[in-house]
Amino acid sequence: MRVTIVTFRDIFQSEAQEIDRFSEEYRKMSAVVFLDKSDAVKAGVKEGANVLVESDNGRVVVVARISENAHPGLAFMPNSPWSNRLVPAKTDDTRIPSYKSISAEISATEDKVPTVEDLLREMVS
């Protein structure tokens, strides 16, 4: 199921980020994707289940949340090191990364959601 990922800022996640970026709380608030109900059905993804989000730039496993309001074709992720796995490293002439419009494939997965430490390990591998 192909969607456009749009990142956003969430106040609860911002609070958790201020307090401790290595906390479980911050991971819970950050490593999520908000899906449209019908998109989730098409992708075979249930509320609270792990979902693989894969763009041309990278892939990341996060937890699926089903939005109350409809936004077919769009999926929202809080801006975080998890969403940044998907943002293209290639930029246009402005050298401003495209944080808010990322084409990605979503699918159900049994894989685990990475911790910040996992993300860091991969960064230096």
Binding site: R21, N84, R85, P88, A89, P97
Partner: peptide
């Protein structure tokens, strides 16, 4: 600032 967190991973990797 925390660019390793806020940059796209591909660029953060270069910075790392």
């Amino acid at each position: 600032s925390d660019p390793i967190s806020s940059l796209p991973a591909g660029i953060a990797k270069a910075l790392a």
